[in-house]
Design a binder for these strands. Structure first.
Lengths: 231, 231, 231, 231
DNA sequence: TATGAATGAGCGTTCATTCAT
DNA sequence: CATGAATGAACGCTCATTCAT
């Protein structure tokens, strides 16, 4: 502003010494991507509230202003983050081998995939927790949400129907319930591992503890669909 | 300058109208309690980061300063909150009728209790989520944590052992896994109900949807322990 | 990382949808004009400080960068705005019928013109207020300023001299004072209408209230020049 | 916040070296007053938009935070400023000697008072301009506004009625119009003095120019009420 | 002639906390 | 026990402007 007297001393900004990346400006794609990835990391670690714009921009080696340039505001960024983590999950899930002729194997593979995915992607868990704390106000803006889910559920539906046709699964189990069961068992272990560790007096981070849990989940789900495991 | 008489300056406090409570000051216990209850409500709604001292003190119809008086700082308050919600949970759980002669009935009752408790106490769920976001740093300060857990787990252990002795339950199921399974299934439904609702395109708030879920959980757990339900 | 193909990043611009205008670029003059007009509107509504570059460029359906291209910076744009509103005023004033043989009629016409002009051009009033808040620093850069004024004042001088020669006006009234009187009475009504409305408890927007004011101004000015109105 | 890592270097704040005023904190009254007075100065100089919280707090040798403590937010501060400048005006006006037996003298005194008040209190003028730029949204919150005005107008009403009863003033002049006329002539000279100076090529700051204007206003108003001045 | 990308300073506001009684 | 006053850091966001093509 023209007449405004600038009095504040120039604060030493850490983000000031951003590498110029050669002599030219960073490409738009690069900037947007690095901001988005940084946002996923920061929101995962600090939550939506604690993940400040400044933390994100400096983690992205960019500037606060760029977040507004590409995402409008913090909410817009969080919506983009939500979309991205769902997209990644779906992309990974699509690679799981589902075979109508082998419902038991398929079910086992999808269980393993989900339990491990939550375990290997703690950002997915904490970001969804943030979104739930905010009562799903951002996911409501994602038109792709239901699209993503339908594929996730239909995987279970296909497996269940194959197994039921083959007579190895019970008839009275819903795909949605089964999906939620697997998700819950994988999610909870990851989401609540700190309070559980304190509560149970046992470190849940240990890899053999986790692998034992995965076996238990497998057993529980197969029991629930009525499949008799051989010993 | 024609400045003249000035009335007492009125600082703008959003909390405002603290009741004078007759002629004597509010008792210490009363203040502490109302702050603690307000903190539970506010942390549950906004998380640890979003639940500001000011929101809490005004919700308690008290003053910021009182929080420091009784709890030292925000962290101390959150530790007290954690302790209180665990205490309440344990208190409620202690009332569940556990009978060594009726392991199946006892298991059913504890399942119902847990699933409904999470459902009826969303603050328990969101506050634990906050604590896990902060990597369990507050629960570590609670010496009572393991004490609480041991009773929770031992309930399952007792039930399991009774059932195993009677030959109605499998031998290879751990009490800890069973506890975690029930907790996960009850917790996840409540914790993730907003993202799940968007994802599944189905409101999980509906009471019949929840009741159906509780039935499913019952079936899943009984199947997992190897109990054959009559149709 | 499963990051995959990314579509072109879409920076969030509130201005947005600039029409492509067929196959060729918008002509330079057109862009400059629409920016200038938008600036008048925006500065009129928000003041110099509140009228941001972004508000103006989006109101002009153009881009921030164009403002710098055509006007150098915000100050240059404001100088151009000042010039334009003075030019418009002068252009309109030049159409008022001034007749040396009819000083009373001419005076009445110029009074009506000025009072109505301020009323019908609130942007003129608010922009001049902004310029005065900034102590006339922009108008100083306008060489045409005094040129404009000389015509405005000379209109009054001519009328006064004619009337004085005819013996219907007093000899001791200065053209400059008369000009300022008319301007003040027209300007103040428009400039301060919001505080006046609150202060007087009477809406000054009403057209009959304004018309009564114009009549009063007419009477006041004619009285001041010593003209005896017939009843 | 507990877990938030503070990375930003501590900026050197000019307001940091605030004099401690002895060993004890400043009294509330003192702080509130000095903020209010600083706000009047700063808003007068830079307008509502340009008058930043930081400019005001440092001019008051206080802290940003204190403005929120005492006035809630910037708007609340501006409302208090409006109230204060109106109060001062009314307080000063109440001291003008109004005598029913001497309507002409009373009118002259009130004209002189008003014209000089605007001249001597440029902050009154610029702050009202700011309020009008914002369409009177703050004054609407002042319940005392109409109360202030009624006294201002009633002064004119009393004078007019006395003069009319004595037969020295015309019957057809409204108190409101007369008030607005005097206000307009005094206000405009002050409010628009920068653009007028550039426009007329004549410094309106000169004290003899102002005094001549005050004489002209006197003549114009007396002519308008139909009073025949002796030469 | 026109544009997308980037930039650093500043904005109003809220934060958790301490001082002084 | 309780309180009003004060504090510095950080927050999300907007500002006018420049870079590079």
């Amino acid at each position: 502003m023209a007449q405004a007297i600038k009095t504040k001393p120039t604060p030493i900004k850490k983000s000031a010494n951003v590498k110029p990346l050669g002599t030219r400006a960073r490409s738009a794609q690069l900037t947007r991507d690095s901001v988005l990835k940084a946002a996923i990391r920061v929101f995962a670690k600090y939550g939506l509230n604690g993940g400040s714009i400044e933390k994100i921009s400096s983690a992205a080696k960019s500037h606060d202003r760029m977040i507004y340039y590409y995402f409008g505001n913090k909410e817009g960024l969080f919506v983009a983050v939500l979309e991205e983590i769902y997209r990644r999950f779906n992309e990974a899930e699509a690679k799981v081998n589902i075979d109508a002729k082998d419902p038991v194997g398929s079910l086992k593979r999808i269980i393993t995939f989900i339990v491990y995915y939550y375990h290997d992607h703690p950002e997915f868990v904490t970001i969804l927790n943030s979104e739930n704390l905010h009562r799903g106000k951002h996911i409501a803006k994602l038109q792709l949400a239901t699209e993503y889910s339908s594929t996730a559920i239909s995987v279970f539906r296909n497996i269940l129907e194959s197994g039921q046709a083959q007579g190895v699964f019970r008839q009275d189990v819903l795909a949605r319930d089964l999906y939620m069961m697997v998700a819950a068992l994988g999610y909870f272990y990851q989401s609540n591992r700190y309070t559980l560790s304190a509560f149970l007096g046992e470190k849940l981070d240990a890899s053999d503890t986790f692998e034992a849990w995965e076996k238990f989940v497998m057993h529980a789900v197969l029991s629930t669909v009525g499949y008799k495991e051989e010993v």
